[in-house]
Design a protein around this nucleic acid. Structure first.
Lengths: 347, 347
DNA sequence: CTGAAAGCGCTTACAG
DNA sequence: CTGAAAGCGCTTACAG
């Protein structure tokens, strides 16, 4: 069954293709009667415009691309959900690609999306990405690109982020406020801006409270598929290295839950012996025992805002207006649960 | 900066567009010299074929659509990962839509994908879907569609599934083998085939072992966002209704983990008082205490196979061959952990 | 080995 | 109010 075209509608009604096209697009210069006839016939024949032809003419695909390091990830899949929902509202379709944290793949995928002529791109950078030419190339082509979560400060485009430094500061301050004095940090990989910022927030909180910063208390984890295991391993290592630690601020909930599991198995009491604050408010954080104090990271909202900003820029470009990159910072909150003690009165 | 076209390359080299096109596509009837020149110029100008024009001519978009009930879901996001990985290998891009378990949305999304002229569709049905005209319409248009996980037996298309009934039977049998005699079931919603099949497998295992089937021991949960909470609630309700239950087979791990959490809080001993088997082998199942015995459900593999089958059909259709729907059944396995007792010798 | 021409299905400036 | 015509960028059957 061949798809129905404008031509067929035109022939059926014995009028021109032009008029059919106009009638369907509600041009004012078509008689009511013709318009009605055309619409009826189109419905009857189950006409669907051929989007390739439309795209070729209008130079719009009504499709955007999303590149994300990892799909199987609660935070990222929540962001995707936000993007898809918002995009659908505005009539956009979403192509999803995953970089597996690889710079090479990310580069290829940008190329792929560009050759598919997506209208714009949403990206969260791979951990391995330290060169940004593939991104600036997109911008140079006048295609809007919006970064979210894992961004590059140096690239001049819109970004949707949280204030990782501030959030980490709050988390660490909470540990201090509840009596911790020797606080370790399980950080993320070295390159990504957000793991750097969380580390800096941790450090600043220590210094502002006149607590010494001790680099041997900082443990790195890749936070990839194995992050639950990494949490267990780091926790075990920490117990071996330092018997005086009384608090840990952990880069991400999954790792924190690994650590809690390890401590539980070894009979280390949380929060009595060691208090823990995680990051992201993964739903399992409230399910584990003890429940995990953590920072709430609004993934759905982030996806939604990222698309909204992209859409704004899309519209601006279409009108030939200048686009000014915008940094959108979403609020985070500290969620106090049972892995930290109740606040002490500040002295 | 306007995109480079074949015309520009042709003008640069003072040859025809035809020859440029042929040279880039490795047609044999182009001289080596011309081919080299064209390739060089194309690279220099950073030529990218306009996919709309190509699609319009070739009637292929090299894009497929995926409709899934929920993106923020460990099993489904794993399937998506498998689909994307396999599709990328074959040069296909993947548009992802989520039905939120709504039949109405699902219908609209099929329409959307069709009007975007995706080459084929992969779908896991919404819980609410009981009419399949939107699916058979796709098939009638000679577009291949492959169902996975949540399928409709009645629709004549390819499907990638597991044998839910058999897996549930195995899970229930394991409870019986380890000494349980009064076994409850937390099942999924009423419509989806896989929750029906899991229920039937549970029932059959009871009957085959001469254990009475008691409908009051079957609890329903929607398994939506709230499924962790549902597990807790059902567990609490079960304790109130029946104090003699010694085992539960639970439709999905997330619900099972909710139940475990509730039992832990109430001091019900697992597996001594109540044994539990879940379904899906979510990674948290091995993290929780006690770790959860469960059925391993190969999500990545399922996504991979679903795309592979679609791709096969795409190629067949292109060659004008007949397509024969195929049912692909993936293996599952019982994973014994600490929420069930060690096997007793069968009497 | 090269190229002129038709055509994919649509949109839109222009003429009447 | 209607329609002939050009053109988006490509592919390919055909002629030379």
């Amino acid at each position: 069954m061949k798809p129905v075209t404008l031509k067929q509608i035109a022939e059926t009604l014995n009028i021109s293709i032009t008029t059919v096209s106009k009638a369907l697009k509600d041009y004012p210069d078509v008689s009511k009667k013709t318009r009605r006839q055309v619409r009826e016939t189109a419905a009857q024949l189950n006409y669907r415009p051929n989007s390739f032809a439309v795209n070729l003419r209008t130079r719009e695909s009504k499709t955007i691309g999303v590149i994300i390091p990892e799909v199987v990830h609660h935070f990222f899949s929540t962001v995707i959900k936000g993007i898809i929902a918002q995009a659908e509202k505005k009539g956009y379709l979403v192509i999803i690609l995953q970089s597996n944290e690889s710079y090479e793949l990310e580069k290829k995928q940008i190329d792929l999306l560009l050759s598919k002529h997506v209208d714009g791109i949403l990206i969260s950078l791979a951990n391995g990405t330290s060169d940004f030419k593939h991104i600036t190339d997109v911008i140079a082509q006048d295609k809007p690109i919006v970064m979210f979560d894992k961004i590059a400060k140096i690239v001049n485009c819109s970004k949707v982020i949280i204030d990782d430094r501030k959030a980490a500061y709050t988390a660490t301050q909470h540990l201090i406020d509840t009596g911790c004095r020797r606080i370790a940090h399980f950080r993320g990989p070295l390159l990504p801006q957000n793991s750097i910022d969380r580390f800096l927030g941790y450090k600043k909180a220590l210094l502002d409270n006149n607590l010494p910063y001790d680099p041997t208390l900082v443990y790195i984890c890749d936070c990839s598929d194995m992050s639950f295991e990494e949490g267990k391993q780091n926790a075990a290592q920490l117990l071996e290295d330092h018997d005086d630690v009384d608090g840990i601020f952990i880069n991400t909930d999954m790792v924190a839950i690994g650590a809690i599991t390890e401590f539980n198995q070894r009979g280390v009491k949380i929060p009595e012996d060691i208090s823990i604050v995680g990051f992201s408010n993964w739903f399992m954080s409230s399910a584990i025992t003890p429940s995990l104090s953590t920072i709430d990271q609004p993934g759905y909202q982030m996806g939604k805002m990222a698309f909204k900003q992209l859409h704004k820029e899309l519209k601006a470009i279409k009108k030939g207006k200048e686009v000014y990159p915008k940094i959108i910072e979403l609020d985070t909150g500290l969620i106090k649960r049972n892995s930290t003690k109740t606040n002490l009165v500040k002295t």
